[in-house]
Amino acid sequence: MDATPESGTATPIFDAVASLLREQSAFALATVVEGPGAGAKLLVRPEGTMGTLGDANLDRVVERDALGELAAGRSGVRNYGEHGEAREDHVRVFIESFAQPPRMLIFGAVDFTASLVRVAKVLGYRVTVCDAREVFATRQRFPLADEVVVDWPNRLLDQVGADLGQRDAVCVLTHDNKFDVPAIVSALATGVGYIGVMGSRRTHENRLVRLREAGVDDAGIARLRSPLGIDIGARTPEETAISIVAEIIALRTGRSAQALSASSGPIHD
């Protein structure tokens, strides 16, 4: 029998890792995997570090490298000398990046939204549902969403747009030009990687006219995925959600979204 239950053991680094994961903060965890002090850890955040790899100079060099890996969203092994020297392999350090989850903003609190929230959560997105209509944009309808915001989409984008990047997505499901057009114009002003807009072919044609009137140029139109999703014959809200996230993944990876059985070549890059 184990006489000393582990709950009695202090695990300060793990406790910090757990709370940073819960807060969805960005950090990197460096671990010596080979060399003196294997298992030693350094938790690295832009605000500072916790723990030590056993040498102050090594800590300094690994802190710098870990912040670089974190910014790039990469995890991997790097080799150092005992005091952090480059081009030596006395110590091997695994740097694991925990980037903030990508964000998905879904505009329009409709049935398709509830399914898209579910699928986006499976993929690890931090999901915000936004609709100006108070009766539709409720927590009860979207229990899995990280936030439900009652406001005009373009006003939400004015607040958070500057933080959006390549990994993030905006999905406009409103089908109402009154909301869609300002939302799309605002989304195009951000660096967001994916802008998908729902609607039939006819809605799409009509919306294009409105967007042109609002001053959107060819480059802006070309950035839109409208109608959004890949063609898998989706009919239900759930199937449509799969079609949308499949398009987001394929756009990120630059793949063609055809069946693997119909192509050859490596499955993973």
Binding site: P5, S7, T11, F14, A18, R22, G76, V77, E96, F98
Partner: peptide, 30 residues
């Protein structure tokens, strides 16, 4: 680690010892 955080915390609350295995490197297809 994010996906298994609640398991890790539950096991620790229950006083169980835990080992972590992490993929640190990959060659070829994986």
């Amino acid at each position: 680690m994010r996906e298994i955080l609640s398991d890790l915390e539950r096991w620790r609350r229950q006083g169980r010892r835990v080992a972590l295995a992490r993929v640190i490197d990959l060659e070829g297809s994986g």
